[in-house]
Simulated scan of single mutants.
Amino acid sequence: MYSTNSALKNYRCFISHAWGHNDSYYKLEEMLDKAPRFKWSNHSVPEHDSLDTATDAELEKELEEQISGTNIVLIISGMYYSHSKWILKEIEIAEDKNKPIVAIKPRGQKRTPMEIQEKADELVGWSTSSIVSSIRRHSL
């Protein structure tokens, strides 16, 4: 998950995504890993490495901790987002923590949910260069 060039700034990213649509998450992770001259660490909660919580309140607290330690929150802005209360909660946490939000439109996606467009600091297309440029531009 880390670039091999240690002289670069390490961008700490939280990728908000729906577990039912993991393909985009893993592809984005791969794109960031392969981006030239870009170092990042992943603070996301992928399905294969879920948080050990028993209640929604515990999960929300854990998500707050994950997001608190980041420079930026990336949202894979597929139309399925409205079916995930957790993506909406992650957006709310990012706003509460004053974390910049970059929405990424998945390849082939024609529309982006209006709520994500309104909350995001920027909406970018599905290309490594535009995503990395946006992370650099908006990271705290």
Rank of each mutant, 00 (worst) to 15 (best):
M1I: 07
Y2V: 11
S3I: 04
T4F: 05
A7K: 14
L8A: 11
R12V: 08
C13V: 15
C13T: 14
I15N: 02
I15T: 10
S16N: 12
H17P: 06
H17A: 06
W19L: 05
H21Q: 15
H21E: 15
N22T: 09
N22F: 07
D23V: 13
S24F: 15
Y25R: 09
Y26N: 05
E29H: 14
E30N: 13
M31A: 09
M31E: 07
M31Q: 13
K34T: 04
A35D: 08
P36V: 09
P36F: 02
R37A: 08
R37N: 14
R37C: 03
F38N: 07
K39R: 15
K39E: 13
K39G: 10
K39C: 14
K39M: 08
W40Q: 12
S41G: 06
S41R: 08
N42S: 04
N42G: 03
H43Q: 09
H43D: 11
S44K: 03
S44V: 08
V45Q: 07
E47M: 04
H48K: 13
H48Q: 12
H48T: 13
D49G: 00
S50G: 01
S50P: 01
S50L: 04
D52S: 13
D52F: 03
D52A: 12
T53V: 15
A54L: 14
A54S: 12
A54M: 13
E58P: 03
E58F: 01
E58G: 04
E60V: 13
E60F: 05
L63V: 07
E64C: 05
E65A: 10
Q66C: 15
I67M: 02
I67Q: 00
S68E: 11
G69M: 04
T70S: 08
V73F: 08
V73W: 01
L74W: 05
I75D: 00
I75F: 06
I76S: 01
S77A: 15
S77Q: 07
G78F: 00
G78K: 00
G78H: 03
M79A: 10
Y81R: 06
S82P: 06
S82I: 13
S82E: 15
H83A: 13
H83D: 14
H83T: 11
K85R: 14
K85M: 10
W86R: 13
W86N: 09
I87L: 11
K89P: 01
I91F: 02
I91Y: 00
I91H: 03
E92P: 07
E92M: 10
I93K: 06
I93V: 11
I93R: 08
E95T: 14
K97Y: 12
K99T: 07
K99D: 08
I101S: 09
I104M: 02
K105T: 09
P106Q: 04
R107N: 05
G108Y: 08
G108W: 08
G108Q: 11
G108P: 07
Q109L: 12
K110P: 03
R111P: 00
Q117H: 10
E118V: 14
K119P: 00
G125P: 06
W126Q: 03
W126R: 05
S127A: 06
T128E: 13
T128L: 00
T128F: 00
T128R: 12
S130D: 15
S130I: 14
V132W: 04
S133G: 10
S134G: 15
I135E: 02
R136D: 01
R137H: 14
